[in-house]
Design a protein around this nucleic acid. Structure first.
Lengths: 201, 201
DNA sequence: TTTGCTACTTACATGCAAGTAAGTATCTTT
DNA sequence: AAAGATACTTACTTGCATGTAAGTAGCAAA
């Protein structure tokens, strides 16, 4: 299920527009929305600043495109594994964050958005709201299925547990910048235990 | 134990320097470090921009002062309640975050620092590292005491549980901007349950 | 072949935030 | 009363990021 940790940000057969979105997402996840600049992407692609404005007139437009790409990727991922055991599906979310850490991306896109929310353009605020909603809904559903099937045996409300997961993961990824990978793994260990899956004997 | 939710950011008997730190902390918690500007504080205090540079030559200097003030306040708070029941001491941390939310501060200082960490001046990075360390150490200690006394009956390692708390609280505060107060309360509910305190019958 | 579209470059305008240098008013100490 | 320190203001520099206007090169369709 896990392909490669070090995915190349851009590939030859991608259009410039798509490369801009990919590189933009990278920088947003490393630096945050307000600290990422068109110039960084322009340098990487050996094009001029204004070329990016050709595709995305305002930074806000690129911001929205990045969020929607990330949301779309999330949907593709969850769709592709929806027949897998529920525990594996939950693990896929955890793996996502471990991969971010290994790629030195200490913000997930949703985390980057909420941590800059007060200064976010309105369209980006709406897009990030939709993105978070998508993740939350998927997770709640997963937890409900697991509770119903007995694959998970937690006593809490699925909504409450989902809230914990979608707060703790972005938070742990952020603080792992200071406390290191072990910190992220401690949080993930705790989250795994909340599911109360059958212990392998 | 809880004084007033709506504490005035500055008071008459404070020095200008202290007012700058307090207002700075407010703005950092609302906007994030890179989005808060000297001009905002200058307007609030009816002074000129350059007056702030008189006290804090570089923005980084004010940043460090804000973090150290926050850390100092945290130490004062925990010191002042160290004789209280352990459960109440844990509740005090939760209350801190509920108060932040009610004051529309959707970043704690540590959260503001880690979410902007890659672009943070070195002195601020160190200061925030110390701040986080202080909170973590306090919490681990509290959990260990509670485990020893039987006031808490969790089975996890105190370190792991502490990691969850200090990731989930900043994360929940941030995402509460999108998902509302109920979301924060769901996370807090889950964290309370991790302590496995005696249920009141 | 000419018309037009796509994908850019060149060159520039704008605005803003950080920071500095020099001056002034007031209060403090000797 | 003189000297210095404190708490600012005025006026300015610098640099950078966003964004725009106008031009160009190449391919694509009519």
């Amino acid at each position: 299920m896990q392909v490669s940790i070090f995915v190349l940000p851009t590939q030859k057969n991608m259009t410039t527009k798509d490369k801009i979105i990919e590189l933009g997402r990278d920088y947003v996840q490393r630096l945050g929305y307000h600290s990422f600049k068109y110039q960084l992407i322009a340098n990487d692609l050996n094009i001029k600043n204004a070329a990016i404005h050709h595709y995305f007139p305002a930074k806000e437009d690129l911001g929205v495109a990045i969020i929607e790409k990330d949301r779309s990727d999330f949907k593709l991922l969850t769709e592709s594994i929806k027949k897998h055991p529920l525990k594996d599906q939950a693990e896929a979310l955890l793996t996502l964050y471990i991969n971010y850490y290994n790629q030195k991306k200490n913000l997930c896109i949703v985390g980057a958005c909420v941590s800059a929310f007060a200064e976010l353009p309105e369209k980006m605020a709406l897009a990030s709201q939709n993105h978070l909603e998508t993740i939350q809904t998927w997770l709640i559903n997963l937890l409900k299925q697991g509770q119903a099937s007995g694959e998970f045996r937690f006593k809490e409300k699925p909504e409450d547990l989902a809230a914990l997961w979608i707060s703790a993961l972005p938070g742990a990824l952020q603080s792992a910048q200071i406390k290191g990978e072990a910190h992220l793994m401690q949080v993930i260990t705790q989250l795994r235990q909340t599911l109360k899956t059958q212990q392998p004997t």
